[in-house]
Amino acid sequence: MQREYIFPGQLIQYEAELKHQFLSHVEFVPEGERIKQCIQCGTCTGSCPVSYAMDITPREIIALFRAGEIKKILNSEAIWLCVSCYSCQTRCPQQIRLTDIFYVLKQIAIRNKIFSKTIKVHKLRETFLKMLNDYGRLNEALLMIKFILKTNPLKGLVFLPLATKLMVKGRLSFKSEAIKNKKALKLIIKKSEEISLPVKKFQPAYKEDAVGYKAIS
């Protein structure tokens, strides 16, 4: 069997594929291509309210992308910790839409089934989407209960005092409100899931897979 050679500067297969996925999705973000303009100044990291707790910071994420280490980014906790406050995006001197790009990274991670072990945002997401699909509207109390049961029922007890308080104030209801035209919404979700935006077919090529500054030009 012939061995596959990796040339200097060439990405290994799965990294090249991830990079291709990422780049073709970034195209759909308005002005997404501005990611190429990053000057690594770190304003994003400095503005981020949670960067102090991230394993890799927003600036490092762009650096890792350039180095062709997409898998490392997707495996990080950082992308799940982002609370989408848009501080980085607002302050970026190069007008890079970083928060929107974080959403793209989350998308790619979900597509490739890579989830954080400690931050269970994806579980919250699953519960949320099921409720949205079933009722068209959301009941925050039920969402929390279902999420807690799914992840850590014991730890969920800390929310009991809050729930009681809300109940006393008459702000808690356990009945899901539903929209009238559930069928239409279900159809919208189903049909739009069938349409995936056209992503160019992956063709590994030496030039395209170059790393470093070549990767972004």
């Binding site: 759909f28 998308q107 979900i110 997401r125 949320f128 949205l132 509207r137 929209i179």
Partner: peptide, 17 residues
């Protein structure tokens, strides 16, 4: 007959949806 806007959660799945 408004429906949930999808919040930030749907944003992380699929752009079209």
């Amino acid at each position: 007959d408004w429906n949930c806007c999808g919040a930030t959660f749907y944003m992380s799945i699929d752009e079209v949806t």
